[in-house]
Design a protein around this nucleic acid. Structure first.
Lengths: 103, 103
DNA sequence: CCTCTGCGTAAGCCATCACTAACGTAAGCC
DNA sequence: GGCTTACGTTAGTGATGGCTTACGCAGAGG
């Protein structure tokens, strides 16, 4: 259930916007904050949550810190959602089969 | 961005547990509540959120209400996560390529 | 050494949220 | 018609969370 933290991290729309900016290309904190309606510390805090969830990776570059997306946590989340989706699909097919047998 | 509500709905661990119970098989509210450490109204509220997010479908059966998982919202979420994952992967490959060219 | 830039962090505030307890309601049963 | 079951809904509460403001700190450059 490691994907739980990633799920929680992406549930906030603002934080998801931050993540999508990082997903486009590795960026610094100020660069992200400049393009958003929130303050720079707020971006910092969102990046911290994303980093703790393993969705993002930090790299020092002088005084700046470059954040880039990490595919691993995203891959785990993808696998978990995929399994749920497949379960839902198979259960639905089963229900349809039962209904057809009755008719 | 319809997947946002599904993402938010699944971000809560308790609600995710409720959803997974429904995912196994269609169940009634009381049946779910009996197997969980929270009250029945709490389960009702979680199911309402899941229903509003399109993750779950409601069916009346006498005095009981049977909830079953809906694959559509889950499919949208799956597609969105999948695209993010692919983007992260391709960006990572790009970075590796640039590093190899420099060496 | 001083200053400026680019950050992270702490404190405080306000909104949101998950939960329980109490109440109201429709469907089955006697 | 009462009674019970299986719910949804509301009101209230404690906790969580995102945001800003203020502050502290490392690195680059003169």
């Amino acid at each position: 259930m490691t994907y739980g933290s990633a799920l929680a991290a992406l549930s906030d729309p603002t934080r998801r916007a931050v993540f999508e900016r990082v997903l486009e290309a590795p960026r610094s904190v100020g660069e992200i904050a400049k393009a958003m309606p929130i303050s720079r510390p707020a971006v910092s805090q969102h990046l911290r949550v994303l980093k703790d969830a393993g969705l993002v990776h930090e790299a020092k570059a002088g005084t700046r810190r470059i954040y880039s997306a990490d595919a691993r946590a995203l891959g785990e989340l993808r696998a978990a959602i995929d399994e749920m989706w497949r379960t839902a699909l198979s259960n639905f097919a089963e229900t349809v089969n039962r209904k057809e047998k009755r008719s």
